[in-house]
């Protein structure tokens, strides 16, 4: 009987997750006259526009993820190590921005950039700053949960056994926080590849990332090419999730503090 409680979700899943993917697959493998074709995928691998957009996406996402990691790790570490009261206050400080719609936040950031004369500088750097700003909480949170759950005794044992601060960090803390790092990277890297609201507003539409290219194709009613690129992104997502071990036992992943 309890199984029937799953029916609402199954319906939701079929209607809004599975069906749209099949519709996209249909468009990706057909042309404007609904004939089967592989042209859309041929376009992906031959058109320099797609390569350019893909490289723009990857470079923006890579740099943004790296910066996020460099900023988030010490913060998460301090957060996890600080007293309970301060912990909550600090945590709320990092989470609050996520309660505000991100389009509004990015527009506010645009105004601020205007005030400090940064807006008319490099659209590329502005886009990266915007991505970092937008996705930093997604990096802090998994790192924080992982570091919080880490057994402090292991760190003490490391000191007892003669390891210095550096060795303890590299040999004990860093490996133990790896699940959080991986989880944080996935949470930042994938959306940063496609979030073209940031590149449109802060980058003044001067940067075309993959998400924007898909929009371009859809606005030009070339749904087929747009769908094919979406499929490509889905494939990248699958591969990267697989590489980072995202398909492994969910229970263990959750216990290690991953958000996925």
């Amino acid at each position: 009987m309890r199984k029937h409680l799953c029916i609402p979700y199954s319906v939701f899943l079929v209607l809004f997750v599975v069906a749209p993917i099949f519709i996209m697959l249909f468009y990706a493998f057909t042309d404007a006259e609904n004939h089967l074709t592989l042209d859309n995928f041929a376009l992906i691998f031959t058109d320099i526009t797609v390569l350019s957009a893909a490289l723009a996406s990857v470079s923006v996402a890579l740099v943004a993820t790296l910066i996020c990691l460099l900023i988030a790790y010490p913060v998460a570490y301090i957060l996890a190590r600080s007293g309970i009261k301060r912990q909550n206050a600090l945590l709320i400080l990092f989470i609050t921005p996520m309660w505000i719609n991100f389009v509004m936040r990015i527009n506010a950031l645009k105004e601020f950039f205007g005030l400090i004369n940064l807006l008319d500088k490099s659209p590329y750097i502005n886009t990266i700053i915007g991505m970092v700003y937008d996705f930093l909480p997604f990096m802090i949170l998994p790192l924080y949960t992982t570091l919080l759950k880490m057994d402090k005794n292991l760190i003490e044992a490391s000191y007892d056994l003669g390891a210095g601060k550096f060795t303890t960090f590299v040999q004990v803390i860093l490996p133990m926080s790896m699940p959080g790092i991986v989880s944080g990277i996935t949470m930042v890297f994938m959306p940063a590849m496609t979030n073209y609201v940031v590149s449109d507003i802060l980058g003044r539409s001067q940067i075309t990332i993959l998400g924007k290219l898909i929009e371009n194709y859809f606005m030009q009613t070339n749904w087929n090419a747009g769908a094919a690129i979406s499929m490509l992104l889905l494939a990248i997502m699958f591969v990267s999730t697989w590489l980072t071990g995202g398909f492994k036992d969910d229970g263990a992943q959750a216990a290690r503090g991953g958000l996925w």
């Binding site: 058109d47 320099i48 526009t49 390569l51 350019s52 957009a53 490289l55 723009a56 990857v58 470079s59 890579l62 740099v63 590329y124 539409s205 001067q206 940067i207 075309t208 290219l213 371009n216 194709y217 030009q220 070339n222």
Partner: peptide
């Protein structure tokens, strides 16, 4: 024309490749 404009908009591939 659409593809031409998409190409122009996609911009400087060299910069992206270098940063990557």
């Amino acid at each position: 024309v659409n593809n031409m404009w998409n190409r122009v908009k996609a911009g400087d591939i060299g910069l992206y490749a270098t940063v990557t």
